[in-house]
Design a protein around this nucleic acid. Sequence first.
DNA 1: CTTGCCTGCCC
DNA 2: ATTCTGC
DNA 3: GCAGAATGGGCAGGCAAG
Length: 654
Amino acid sequence: MNRAPRDLLAAVYLTFGRCAERHEVGSELVVGGATVGASIAEAAGVSKQTVARMNDELGDLGDVAVALKRRQVTLAKPKPLTVRRVLETLRAIASEKGAGSAGRKKDRVLGLMRAAREGEIRWLTRTLIRNMRIGANKISVLHALASAAETHHSRRDGNASEGEAKLGVTPAMAAVQRAYSLCPSVDVLVPALVEGGVPNAVRSCTMRPFTPVKPMLASITAGAADAVTRIVCKREEDEESGKTFLVEYKYDGVRAQIHVAPSDGGGDDWAVKIFSRNCEDRTAAFPDVANIVLEGAKGGSGMVVDPHTGRGGGGLILDAEVVGIDRSTGRLRAFQDLASRPRGGVNEAELAARTAVDVVVFAFDLVLELARSAEVDAPTVREPNALGSDDDDRYDDRLLPAIETVRAFMLESLDAACEGVMLKRLDGDKSRYSPSKRSDCWLKLKKDYCENLRDSLDLVPIGAWFGQGRKAGWYSPFLLAVYDPETETYQSMCRCMSGFTDEFYRTRRENFGKPPSLVESGVKPPVYDTLEQPDVWFNPTEVWEIRGADLTLSPKHRAAAGARHEERGISLRFPRFIRVRDDKNVEDASGPEEVARLFDAQQSRYDGQGESATRRLAEQAALDAEAEKDEGDSDEDDDGGDREAVLDGDEEER
DNA sequence: CTTGCCTGCCC
DNA sequence: ATTCTGC
DNA sequence: GCAGAATGGGCAGGCAAG
């Protein structure tokens, strides 16, 4: 900040590992491990296979690049790389398009590789593949900026002696972090910091239409009791409040932060932008959503009215979930269907022509409402419909009805093809929208978090890859399969890398490294059915319990292949390891029939046949026999299908 | 023209 | 997304 | 309690290779 303020902006972009903010369209490099690996190979004059082999061993392409650089004799010292030149090159890479662009991207990467010195090439490689592995991320950079700005401005203003107007470093860090989550734009933040320090940055980085806010996130829970207890009982500084909370369906769609405001031209025109959970501009992917919102803006229905002027509000930021829906039946559709929509470059008519999935918008929060004030930090909820009173101290007993209500509501949500429910605090400071925070204000409760609702599978590890980074030297991920006793084959179901302790990895590398478990020839056993090609194959010797969220039709996994889809097998979403089943032989592992049965139970929810989850399996046989009599009320298409219940918790704490 | 690889992004 | 680990 | 790291299934889009 002192020495090279003009380079600071570029330096911050580089530490973020990007050439522009995420919401800038076209800011992606579209360069990955394959391109970078090829460039490293070319720069060092070795084959791509050599680079790949070294990568298997070292587990880090950056380390491979360094090792190869060391071997080289440099004839002419390359011109040193500068921060600004690297950023310019990244931007040039991002803007390459069309035929031959892959080659031109690679050439630019190659240029950087050649110019990089030994100390730079690891950083450069990791930046290009966006995997820094340095134990620090954006937040650390923001904190460093805050600290530097504090020091810099204290000194410049001549009151280094415990500046009175100064914030102090720790509050400054928090302030900058918060400022950036309200207005995640380096272009706004950095010049403001340089010019007027942290207070100036805080003034500049306010929530505004058409700049995405870092979305608020929810914490995971261990079941309905845990969720209710946490949402009600931990209220340290909120003694006054904290008696009510909201429960709502957790829809399985995509997060959409919808911005609506008068367009720049003024007049009565409104503009809409839609941002993803990661603050990408996805407006082009949802022309139908944009139209729904614009219609609302025109008609005024549901829009904010300024009580003083009586006019429509100056703009809104809504937080919402966009979910696929079958308009002919009113049923929600699976996430996998929603994902198959085109992602841009189509208008609404083209979307329809491509038989895209229709969507509903469930708006669940009002993040900013300009009619009220440009500075609101959004108390976002409607008035709670509190039930009962809170004169009793014994919250444990009093929570039981609430837990039961939540549990029942969750079963209902599952029948409605949702993932579970969300619990949100309704009052007190903690109920405010907290950008980018994952805290106990919002809790998510999904089926697979609940002991008695989840099912797991017993799968056989049949192969693995060599881990990267902190898992270098270990097998990760593993390839897991079901066993089909009919054909005596193993059909792959998923890879898995979650749920293993470091200790587990250590022992597995030893155990699987020795015969008889490792297939020494390295050739895929003929009884293995998979489109995957792991680095090593294992003989089938163990059974592992694996949990997941739901089942998907897979293009590369083969469990129950052909049973529920002409070609595809069935796979598992969000797989994680639970434990080794020492008590089972591989012949006792889950099989294709079990997988197909679970898949049917899941499908029944989308067909509107989902009975309460606890009874669903028992009724499956009856369902099969039953003739297909479908009907049912189609839920209204639009918004408004949102179900919610307000429960009364109890305060206190302990 | 079709297929398949790579990348980025959703969860 | 989920999970484990280290601070 | 939080940040950081590794990496899951699976889709579209864009380009290269056949």
